[in-house]
Design a protein around this nucleic acid. Structure first.
Lengths: 141, 141
DNA sequence: CTTGACCTTACCATCATGGGAAGGTGCAGA
DNA sequence: TCTGCACCTTCCCATGATGGTAAGGTCAAG
């Protein structure tokens, strides 16, 4: 099949399929006489794997490692699990940072009247007037 | 003061200070005879504002808007609050997406023995063998 | 034979940031 | 005065993942 259909089946854009080929994440596709790329079910399978890994937030480098493990029948599941747990830790760090930002902003916004007057604790906070820009931890959740 | 000291005082790198000038986020700095940029406390104040906004995850465009509101003595705090609340919503969307990824991966990892054998539910999930790649909501946070 | 849908490569853009090269400035010490 | 060093300047390139667009080739249906 052509790249367009492969794209539709896998949810990976034509652009990205060519890109993945160029960086060696997938092997060079077969070519027809027309020079069009030609994909089979094995390629679709690999692209689907990549898309699912992307959807779970793995980076290209992590996906490269996962593909290597996937193709290695001698792999130990411990290796896959370790890679996954490292990624979970990355995700949790990001979540924590974003949560801190949200909490700080929610505190500032809560202190802001939001009326027609210019006085605004949010601006004051950004300006450095408020010392404790970092919000206290929320009680729960 | 020179750009290096301004950088130290504000926590904004030399590179980024020049960049902010080039995109008009801060006014063109004064120049000494040597052509070195020269900063005063007003510049430091503005850079500090920008850094704090960046630390809270605002994009450059949002910061541009915040700076405009900061300099507008006629602003209404409602405008600032609206901008902030929109950003809080963005943050919460990101947090939710990352949390879904984490939950899915935690479920897969929990089902993986992590031993020397190759059998691995994580790989199976990425491969598309498992239908319910999306993890059930966790009971409580 | 034309039309339109598809494909090809090649280049440029995003966003925020950093690296490095090549060269100028300014100050402290021998 | 010369030298070294720390700092500054501009300019170009890179990241990661993705999209846009342009200029052109291929192919099937009408």
């Amino acid at each position: 099949m052509q790249i367009g259909e492969a794209s539709k089946l896998t949810g990976v854009s034509r652009k990205m399929i060519r890109h993945y080929e160029s960086i060696g994440l997938i092997p060079s596709a077969d070519r027809r006489d027309s020079n069009y790329r030609d994909y089979g079910h094995r390629d679709i399978h690999r692209l689907g794997f990549i898309r699912r890994a992307r959807d779970l937030g793995f980076s290209m480098e992590e996906i490269r490692d996962l593909l290597r493990l996937w193709g290695d029948t001698q792999r130990s599941s411990a290796d896959v699990k370790a890679l996954t747990e490292a990624h979970i830790t990355e995700l949790e760090n990001k979540i924590r940072l974003l949560g801190e930002m949200r909490d700080t902003l929610a505190n500032l916004a809560q202190a802001c009247d939001g009326d027609n007057r210019p006085d605004c604790p949010i601006i004051d906070g950004l300006e450095g007037k408020l010392v404790d820009l970092h919000a206290p931890r929320r009680a729960a959740n």
